[in-house]
């Protein structure tokens, strides 16, 4: 979904052909190493956008090579893009694999939860170390956007690390409390999906 919106946004900037679109996206996310989207993916997304009437073909470009189709955004596409801009991106923190792992570890008693925490922490630090290393290498005069992106990653990692510290500090309390169990439900009622 966000690749779709990103392509719409790039077309809103100006009409582009498929290859150009792919290059622009890569530049936007700071290189293929950060978010590797294949040209095929770009073309298939473009096809879907055309189907939905958000993008239309505007003409051909031919400079000695094979001819390229130029794509442009439609008014419907602009409306879609506007809607995307006005909707905040939801972070889905509840769906955290580590949390599930930790709870299960507590429930089963198979492994010391500390080991889980430490392993996670070491991994997070490793990530943070990598991010900071990369960030230190970036040139703030020309690669600020990239730096901001790395900062975002670093801050998420920091937040995770702080949260881990908190879990570590309060683990004993958590242990003393009963684990979340499914509530016994009265029969006959239909199960309501969340």
């Amino acid at each position: 979904m966000s690749v779709r919106c990103a392509l719409l946004g790039l077309l809103a900037q100006r009409p582009r052909h498929g290859y150009e679109l792919h290059a622009a996206f890569e530049a936007l996310v700071g290189g293929a190493e950060n978010w590797d989207v294949s040209p095929a993916q770009v073309y298939s997304t473009l096809a879907r956008l055309k189907e939905a009437g958000l993008v239309r073909e505007e003409g051909l470009e031919q400079e000695g090579g094979p001819e390229k189709v130029i794509h442009a955004i439609t008014p419907a596409g602009r409306r879609e893009l506007e809607a995307w801009f006005s909707t905040p991106v939801r972070a889905e923190h509840q769906r955290d694999e580590f949390f599930v792992k930790l709870m299960l570890c507590l429930a089963t008693g198979e492994v010391d939860p500390m080991t889980v925490i430490y392993a996670q922490r070491a991994s997070l630090y490793q990530e943070l170390h990598a991010v900071t290393t990369q960030r230190a290498r970036a040139d703030p005069r020309s690669e600020l956007a990239h730096i901001l992106l790395l900062d975002q990653a670093a801050m998420h990692l920091e937040a995770d690390l702080r949260w881990l510290d908190m879990v570590e500090a309060r683990l004993d309390e958590v242990r003393r409390q009963p684990l979340p169990e499914p509530q016994p439900r009265p029969r006959g009622r239909p199960r309501r999906a969340r």
């Binding site: 190493e33 990530e127 990598a130 290393t133 992106l149 790395l150």
Partner: peptide, 9 residues
């Protein structure tokens, strides 16, 4: 660098 690239990706 590798680690970092992978992680960010």
């Amino acid at each position: 660098n590798d680690g970092a690239e992978k992680l960010v990706r």
